[in-house]
Design a protein around this nucleic acid. Structure first.
Lengths: 119, 119
DNA sequence: CAAATATTTTAGTTGTAACTAAAATGATTT
DNA sequence: AAATCATTTTAGTTACAACTAAAATATTTG
């Protein structure tokens, strides 16, 4: 397992793309339609990152490129993701997470301060 | 499994800290001594992030705070990390990775361009 | 070949993670 | 209560991931 894998799946956006191409290949356009809050170009760039990490593969047919996940490249992480996606609760969390991380890769850490040392 | 976990382990620096406190608790000072390329404060900040994600716990004794990993919070990811650390090859890669990511959280994507579509 | 369609790439912007240096806080000892 | 030790927090800097809009590239169709 490449550490690039850990990097790749740390992004909610990339996890969502992975999910979309998990079972069956999808065109970039189809993926983009499922993520209307980002531009086509943004989807293409994330697909490039995923492809460079070996987590998706592409196939060209006619005018389209079809992308498909490579679960075998994810090793044990594949099961973790699948478990997350199967969990209905997770779907809600993902939605909130995607909305929150409209820009910026990572969830903000909570601002709640605690002045005294907490043991 | 919280997605904050995936976030936390995406950072080589945090993975290294986790490794140091995996088997036995360590003071912040001891952790810092094992990572001389960053300041004490930087270590403390990353420990805070890990603690907020529930991946480490702290205990205060005398002047020191002892940090310890909480592998149970990592779920299946714990095994992945352990497997990585056990692999000698990984140790070399991690060293290079840490050196390369002196600043900046993630490995640069390779600049190699390919102008034609590659199917 | 021109037009249409699908995708990639470029150039530039923005938010923020990871860091540093120094100040602040907390705990212990004298 | 001052001095010392260990850690946390603050304020500010820097590098870069994720994004947008537009231009470029590739592929098929009329």
């Amino acid at each position: 397992m490449d550490p690039a894998v850990l990097d790749a799946i740390a992004s909610p956006r990339r996890r969502e793309i992975l999910r979309l191409v998990w079972r069956e290949e999808q065109t970039v356009g189809a993926i983009h339609q499922a993520m209307p809050d980002v531009t086509f170009g943004a989807v293409s760039l994330q697909l490039r990152l995923l492809a460079e990490a070996g987590l998706v593969e592409a196939r060209g047919e006619r005018r389209n490129r079809f992308y498909k996940a490579r679960p075998e490249a994810l090793g044990p992480v594949a099961e973790i993701l699948e478990r997350m996606w199967d969990d209905a609760l997770w779907k809600l969390k993902l939605a909130a997470e995607l909305e929150e991380t409209r820009r910026g890769p990572k969830p903000r850490r909570r601002p709640g301060r605690k002045s005294k040392r907490e043991v």
